[in-house]
């Protein structure tokens, strides 16, 4: 499967970790973990910068994470205008940090650093696949 199915708008079509999209299709968000040294990667990597191995396991991002930071964007780059305003941020899942958008279902007023979130996969009307944070 081509990687350009990932994201509201894609800017990259080929990667060795395009199985990421297959997992999204199955409702899972996965990073990689080096089989040789155990280093964990999100976003997923095909190659380990610590031990130079390319032998990876797919590791599931699950459970409850803490929101590390966020911003409510009133402006957007080309291709994202229709979604404005939206909230982008980063959450920490037991030491693995994940970047993404917060679900529109979360009241913007309620968002605060440290709030508990989970990830879920989403599919846009045009078939693009992604994931977002929801309240945990």
């Amino acid at each position: 499967m081509s990687f350009n199915k990932f994201g509201r708008k894609s800017f990259a079509s080929q990667t060795k970790v395009d199985a990421f999209v297959d997992y999204l299709e199955k409702g899972e968000v996965r990073g990689t973990q080096c089989k040789s040294c155990g280093k964990k990667f999100f976003p997923p990597r095909a190659d380990c910068d610590q031990c130079l191995s390319s032998d990876m396991d797919w590791m599931k991002i699950e459970g409850v994470g803490d929101l590390v930071t966020f911003t409510r964007q009133g402006f957007a780059p080309t291709g994202f205008e229709k979604d404005v305003p939206y909230t982008t941020g980063m959450a920490n899942f037991d030491g693995v940090q994940v970047f993404g958008r917060l679900a529109d279902s979360i009241n913007a007023e309620e968002v605060e650093i440290g709030m508990k979130v989970a990830v879920r996969t989403i599919q846009y009307d045009d078939g693009q696949l992604s994931y977002e944070f929801i309240k945990a």
């Binding site: 990687f3 990932f6 894609s10 990259a12 964007q73 994202f80 982008t88 958008r101």
Partner: peptide, 22 residues
Amino acid sequence: QERMGRGSDIQWESPFGTMMPA
């Protein structure tokens, strides 16, 4: 505006519609 979105990691973060000010 178009370039703004490609100022971050185009593979993993630009697809969320982020930009430098964000």
